[in-house]
Amino acid sequence: MTQLLEAQINERVQADVLAYVKRLQASGTAPNEDELKKYAEERRLLYEKQYGLDKPIWIRIFYRVKDVMTFNLGKATTEQISYAGSRDVKTIILGYLPNTVFLFTTGTLITIVIGLFLGLQVAKRVGSFMDRFISILAMVSNSLPMWWTGLLLIFLFSFYFRIFPAGGMHTLPPPQDKLLYVIDFLWHLTLPLLTIVLVSFGGWAYIIRNLVIGTLQQDFVMAARAKGLPERKVLYGHVLKAVSPSIVTMSILSIVNSLWGAMITEGIFNWPGIGRLYWIALETNDMAIVIGLTYVFTLIWLIALIVIDLLYGLLDPRVRVGIS
């Protein structure tokens, strides 16, 4: 950080000195070597004061933290990272975020829906072929790198069958027509979306299966069955209601998590989302972006945890009443 700032100051001082020399030449006097050095030193001190480099490091850290806390996230250091010409960190993050939401949050939502459906279906038939398949799938996808799956899908669908594009969000140049634009976008979206869903739906189905099976052994389920309720009603009315707090928790956490995107998967599909932004920022040593992203998303994460705590009270009457 300090090094970066010093480099910036150096640049500015040099630019100033050049301007000073030009001014002198315009007025007809030859630049004096000693005078120039003095001038440069003056400017350097001025800038160091402006940037706060004259203060001890802990004060600088304090100001930096204060800035970040108040969302004064600063500007990206290099031109390489910008959104619509702006280098403001907030604008950049907000600019890249929708791309990640389109891909990862959509993917997570689809995963949750498929997982919920499959998990419930499988829980009804423990030990069936489908049940065993889901268990194996969950184990495999637990150790399956998402980005590698992406590579395989690119190979299969972009190289071999040539159905989907290998990466990017749009064909270049993007089509002008609104409808075609959307279709083109969806066409590019399919492959990465497929990757995300493929890798994660097995795990979801398995977790939901386990939750449901655990609840099915509870007494109130037996009571509901004894009452003569149809199995459908038992499953969707009683069991689903009982497991809903856990499912809501997991869903919120994974949706919040999805906002992070994924560094490698986005890189592979050349998808301009948050994950790739983070990676480029790391590569170009753009600390303003790195700190900004880390802070904002940790904050969102903590807020999500609080929201979950509150929701628990809403969904689970036992929590509301308290154990006292």
Partner: peptide, 19 residues
């Protein structure tokens, strides 16, 4: 992947998953 060198991509990934 885009040159179709599948053996280069598949075996490491399969090993990661298998391990």
């Amino acid at each position: 992947t885009l040159k179709g060198l599948w053996w280069w991509v598949i075996s490491p990934g399969v090993m990661i998953t298998l391990t």
